[in-house]
Nucleic acid binder design. Structure first.
Length: 597
RNA sequence: GGUCGCAUAGCUCAGCUGAAUAGAGCAUCUGCCUUCUAAGCAGAGGGUCACAGGUUUGAGUCCUGUUGCGAUCACCA
């Protein structure tokens, strides 16, 4: 049984014995003992004063004595004001370490052990332009959250809903037709998504010119935006697409194909993947029948022009259109349909949408409408709403050319990793392939950690001028610590030193050793907490703390040169475990860690 | 205007269900490589936790209000 559970039960029985009172488990608060005091766990005794009818110190003293007498793992306690600090024996911790020492999956729940299936939708790009830094945050979050949910024993289905249809892609298509001269990724050497994105920009430039021509003639701006020939043509193209025009469809397929080839490259470098890819062109008509059914049941309302709405004013929201007067769908309609389809097709317990916080309202409405329509599963929809990535001058604007391109950023990171590694002379004995692999690992590690260490829901700032750090609270720091440990372990193996185990229960642990071993045992809780909160940041901050703690231990103690063989084996063992956890935690963030760096 | 979110060191960020003197990193300054990887370790300075009330034995954390910033409220997605 978990030591904290044991202690909790002991506190309950202690209160019963000492004060003839029944305490609620929820009032028992064990927390980590602060560094400045001696102890492993601290019980806050204030909640029990009413039962003991004594002052905090006395109550803590009595409870401490009770605990000490009733659990052999407790070696001592001390009382500071209303805080009871409890210290467990070194041998307890060492024994615990032994138990997990050969368990490579320590902290992770067995695959599918929870019996729950959770679908995570993420990425969901538009196909008219390349991915940028904002998409990177989405992709890294979606992937990491999926991995964390798996580590919590859930069956996870990662899906991507590609927005492959609509006016935006028609703009690129039209511009390509007009000004492309048959350009292809092959003929230009451009990545497919970049090529298509260039024509999207071209469209916007030409469109603006037309608007200006009109406004110069005295047309007001709003009207000019409507009247401009290009936008008319783009809309006509969308109509033809919907009508199934063969030529338009052919072009659409071709250009989307280029984009997918480009995306695949970016996804592969980022290391994200999907179990299923949905395309809006195949799902955009879903949901219509559900809406009509809702109308029949009187849950939804129809206006005079025939449009169908959900009236959410009673819930403090507005009215929301679900079917236009011409009977066509809006985005919300599709989401209603796809959610329904997914829950029935995959027997989902939960459905998580990784989508930016600009769509908070959308998901609030989606859930509410589904609940009103009577779907019980709607309660199990959640929106992992993440904050925007901003630049020092504010939001990224594609029109102002301030977007940070995903591929460029990744390439920069890898290049910085190369430069830094060369300067530090770290790769002198690496083969070319090994070095290339390492640069990629470090560059991406820096980027991923930088993004994921921030609480998802918060807006984060990225300053392109100050490239992402490689020192301090960073991915490379964590990677370095892993490499450092592995290096010691390799040397131990070469020297034929046994890692495990027997006999070292009686050694005395130093403060650094105690701190490290305690931190190691927090890993399972960290995974659970990260899963409950959909927060990779919790994992990131933990593995940083662990790496930092290890480096202190490493600095103060020698391992291979330690004379006492029991101490040496213990240190080797705790080192191995630390490396395992760093590797495991990093993997949950989609980060790889090197054996050498 | 309505709704929602955010505000912690010069900068970037931690701070889980309230609890001890609010923590890291970067930047600045100072030490530590003939010793298992110095992408490391140690130390110094740096805070009215936006502001004002309230609840509580106890508030950065909960409630109310104010200010500032952001998002959103389309027959857009």
């Amino acid at each position: 049984m978990n030591i904290l559970t044991t202690l909790e039960e002991l506190v309950l029985s202690g209160i019963d014995t000492l004060y003839s009172a029944k305490a609620d488990v929820k009032t028992i608060q064990f927390q980590k003992t602060r560094k400045e005091f001696e102890g492993d766990f601290t019980l806050v005794v204030f909640p029990f004063l009413k039962m003991s009818k004594k002052n905090p110190e006395q109550t803590a003293e009595e409870l401490g004595t009770y605990l000490l007498n009733n659990n052999k793992n407790i070696v001592s306690f001390n009382v500071v004001k209303g805080f009871l600090n409890i210290k467990l024996s070194d041998s307890y911790w060492i024994n615990e370490l032994k138990i997990i020492s050969t368990d490579k999956l320590f902290g992770l729940k067995p695959a599918n052990s929870s019996g729950k299936s959770i679908m995570v939708e993420y990425s969901s790009p538009n196909t008219n332009k390349p991915l940028h830094l904002g998409h990177i945050r989405n992709n890294l979050l979606g992937y990491a959250v999926s991995e964390i949910l798996k580590a919590n024993g859930h069956n996870v289905i990662k899906v991507n809903l590609v927005n492959d249809r609509g006016i935006h892609i028609c703009k690129s298509m039209l511009a390509w037709q007009k000004w492309g001269n048959g350009a292809t990724p092959e003929s230009t050497g451009l990545k497919g998504d970049k090529l298509v994105g260039d024509y999207y920009v071209k469209f916007d430039q030409e469109y603006k010119k037309q608007i200006k021509e009109l406004t110069d003639k005295g047309v007001d701006e709003k009207q000019a935006k409507e009247d401009a020939e290009l936008i008319q043509e783009a809309r006509e193209m969308l109509r033809q697409w919907e009508a199934g025009n063969i030529e338009v469809n052919q072009l659409w397929k071709t250009m989307n194909g280029w984009v997918y080839d480009g995306f695949d490259v970016t996804y592969k470098v980022l290391g994200v993947d999907f179990d299923k890819i949905y395309y809006e062109s195949e799902t955009y008509k879903l949901g219509k029948s559900i809406v009509l059914e809702g109308l029949e049941k009187g849950i939804l309302i129809q206006k005079e022009d025939g449009s169908i709405w959900a009236d959410l004013t009673a819930d403090g929201l507005d009215q929301k259109i679900l079917l236009r007067s011409d009977g066509t769908s809006v985005y919300m309609t599709q989401d209603i349909g796809t959610a329904h389809q997914r829950f029935s097709e995959f027997k989902l317990n939960d459905l998580v949408y990784v989508v930016g916080n600009e769509q908070n309202y959308h998901f609030q409405v989606l859930k509410l409408v589904l609940i009103k329509l009577g779907y019980n599963w709607a309660e199990h929809i959640s929106h992992l709403s993440y904050g925007m990535v901003e630049l020092p001058e504010g939001k990224m604007k594609s029109r102002e050319g301030t977007v940070v391109d995903a591929d460029d950023l990744i390439a920069d990171m890898i290049d910085t990793a190369r430069q830094t590694s060369e300067e530090l002379g770290k790769i002198n004995d690496f083969t070319g392939d090994e070095a290339t692999k390492l640069f990629k690992m470090i560059g991406l590690g820096a980027l991923k950690y930088f993004i994921l260490k921030v609480d998802p829901k918060k807006t984060m700032l990225f300053n392109p001028q100050e490239s992402i750090d490689f020192n301090g609270n960073t991915g490379p720091f964590v990677q370095y610590t892993h490499a450092r440990i592995r290096s010691v372990i390799r040397k131990a193996e070469e020297a034929g030193i046994e890692q495990y185990i027997v006999g070292e229960e009686n050694i005395k642990l130093s403060e650094k050793e105690q701190n490290l071993i305690k931190l190691v045992f927090e890993y399972p809780n960290i995974i659970a907490e990260a899963g409950n909160n959909f927060s990779p940041a919790i994992i990131a901050n933990y593995i940083y703390e662990l790496a930092k703690e290890y480096n202190q231990f490493y600095h103060d103690h020698s391992i291979l040169k330690e004379d006492n063989i029991d101490i040496q084996k213990f240190r080797l063992s705790i080192s191995t475990k630390t490396a395992d956890i760093i590797k495991s935690g990093a993997a949950l963030l989609g980060m790889e860690v090197p054996e050498k760096m």
